[in-house]
Every structure is written in structure tokens, then in C-alpha cells.
């Protein structure tokens, strides 16, 4: 059997990481134009909601959206349709906005490729930034994050699990060795 999961971030550390990410988002986004955080289904949505709450608390107006990229995947034929397609909701036009894509884990980069393609069908953002809680390495496409909570080198057999209180009852980031590929 596999070794026990290794804790990378606990609740306190995750809260601290999110606060640091907020500061970076605000700095990088500048002042004038519309700022929109778009969470990638599933746990990117909860992370985007938290970041947006923290940003609003600082008095910076921010919009919140969610995106499901299932229908834009490049491997639908290999895996067959994933039955559950979650909600996509973008509150306003993307044109001219600074859009921050929020996801829990950045791995191959294919999800983000799909998200970028999907955005072009919704409008033309002035700028798109990528914000992830965990960068675990292993990219298969030339995509890099702008804002990162924690960087970890995880092997192909390993899995990085992000838990959020809203869905999982607790906040945590764990490295699961030799688990099933997610």
C-alpha cells in the first residue's frame, strides 16, 4: 500500500498563501480597468470566491465568474465524455477586462489551454493572468503561472489533493504518493 499523504499546507498556511496571492493580484492588475476572477470548476471556483472576498475587503471592486472547460478538452475522444459538465457563468463581457484564471493545481497546462480557448469565444480580455494555489510541475504545454501559492515537484505517479472547507470540510493541500492518477 501507498505511503501516507504528506501535508504541504494546513489551514493556517493556506490562508496565508491566499492573502499573499491577493496582494499580488491587486499589484499586477493595476487600478483602472475591470478585474474579474474566473474559477475553474471544481475547486478553482471556491478559491476564486475566497480571493474575491479578500480583494473586496480591501476596497477593490472585483467580479467573479466560473468556467467549466469539459467541452473544450483536447482528450474527449480518449476518455469519452465526462458525464457531469458543471456550470459556466461569466457575469459580464470579458472585453477589456483583466481576467485572472484561478485553479487549484497546475499540472500539464491542458486545462488552462482549454480555458484560454473558451475565453476567446466569450470576448477579448485586455489581459489574462493565471493564478494557482499549487504548481506541481510536469507541464506538457508552454503555459506558466503568474501568481502561485506554493511550488512543489511532484512525480507523475503522485497526486496533489487540494481540500477546501466549502466542499471537503477542511482546508489542506496534500501530496499523495503513488496514488491513482487523478
Amino acid at each position: 500500500m501507498a505511503n501516507p499523504p504528506r501535508r504541504l499546507l494546513d489551514e493556517t498556511a493556506m490562508g496565508r498563501a491566499l492573502e499573499r496571492m491577493v496582494a499580488e493580484i491587486v499589484t499586477r492588475a493595476g487600478g483602472s480597468e475591470t478585474l474579474m476572477l474566473v474559477g475553474i470548476q471544481r475547486r478553482g471556483v471556491e478559491l476564486a470566491e475566497r480571493l474575491a472576498r479578500l480583494i473586496s475587503a480591501e476596497g477593490r471592486p472585483v467580479r467573479l465568474g466560473k468556467l467549466d472547460i469539459t467541452l473544450y478538452r483536447d482528450d474527449l475522444q480518449q476518455i469519452g465524455p465526462r458525464p457531469v459538465v458543471a456550470e459556466t457563468r461569466l457575469p459580464t463581457a470579458l472585453d477589456g477586462a483583466t481576467v485572472v484564471i484561478v485553479d487549484d493545481v497546475l499540472y500539464t497546462g491542458r486545462t488552462i489551454r482549454a480555458a484560454l480557448t473558451e475565453f476567446t469565444d466569450f470576448g477579448r480580455p485586455r489581459r489574462v493572468l493565471l493564478c494557482v494555489l499549487v504548481d506541481r510541475g510536469g507541464r506538457e504545454l508552454p503555459i506558466q503561472p503568474d501568481i502561485v501559492g506554493i511550488t512543489v515537484q511532484a512525480g507523475p505517479g503522485e497526486r496533489v489533493d487540494v481540500s477546501v472547507a466549502e466542499l471537503d470540510g477542511r482546508d489542506a493541500v496534500e501530496l499523495v504518493p503513488g496514488g491513482d492518477p487523478a
Partner: peptide, 23 residues
Amino acid sequence: QLILDTAEPFKEVSERPIKKVPA
């Protein structure tokens, strides 16, 4: 049930400015 649940997100696709996904 699966078909009805899958239809939900597809309703939204028809409300998009570009009513098309590459699936």
C-alpha cells in the same frame, strides 16, 4: 437522470454570445 442533468449546462451554451463549443 444523467441526460436531464447533462442538459442543464447545455442550456447555458445557447445563451452565450458565441453559441458553440468544440466538444
